[in-house]
Amino acid sequence: MLFFKSYLLPRIIQYIVVILIGTTVVFVVPRLMPTDPVQKTLELVALQGTYIDPEAVEKLRETLKELYGLKGTLFEQYIAFWKRLFKGDFGPSFAQFPTPVMDLIRISLPWTTVLLLLTTTLSWVIGNILGGLAGYFSNQRWARVLEGVAMVIRPVPYYIVALGLLIIFAFAFPIFPVGGGLSVGRELHLTLDLLLDIVRHAFLPALSLVLVGSSVWFMTMRLLVSNIVREDYVLYAQVGGISDREIVFRYTIRNALLPQITGLALSLGQIFSGALITEQVFAYPGLGTLLYNSVSRGDYNLLMGITLLSIIGIATGVLIIDLIYPLFDPRIRYR
């Protein structure tokens, strides 16, 4: 019971607050807009020059208000907004009317989810193992080289790294395709050939995510381990003749992993944002490219749907990490 009250309850409250703040921002921002979208659309119709019955204009205004969710007082709009959210209804897409936004998202979501899960896990594991080794053997030459490389890659944003890889591996040395998720004209039959094609297309986006991601984890892990190495118990283990390998993996990395798990939860939002922009560079058919298309076509409903969904997705991901955290940290389990 104490475990529930002191560990689980704050996490669940946090979850609700994240979603509440995120959705409220999404709700409020468009309503601060200086121009009225309904008026703007009506003006566009009027500009076309044909005569429209004033009564029909009024009707059109009502329909548009309904479409944009602008009916009633602000409070009523807010309630209606939440009702639609619970039903998972983000309205129709403006650019591809009348396809529901949800349908468009459903097509691209698996691409992003698989890419993101794979690269996040991979970069977390690679970064932590290499960082742990480099922190423990910090005087070795290879550790310094690794640190130098990670230090250069770490601060560069995903977009620039992706662009750099694209320049090198798709234009200068055309080994990998310039973009897309599949070769043009391919049908979705489950064959080995198709799988290879998907991997070939996903390789560069994945590589850029892993490169940046693992150097981020590398830098923090190296710092954590280089502090742990100075602890007395490590010296004791060394004096006691335990092999370096065992000390690194069983005593130092393991002890430094806990803050890294918390770090993973906290940086999930940033990783996700990075993945969106990387997808756009490689025209990978996931949420990022969908987001980019919705921006360039002014498809407001789709934009809002993706934003809301990503907020909920990230918050849920963080909650899941928080919930499995006690499995790794016995101090929380036995409290």
Partner: peptide, 12 residues
């Protein structure tokens, strides 16, 4: 605010 994916929100 730390957890929220800021990019989609900023784009919006």
């Amino acid at each position: 605010f730390v957890i929220l994916p800021l990019l989609p929100i900023l784009i919006l």
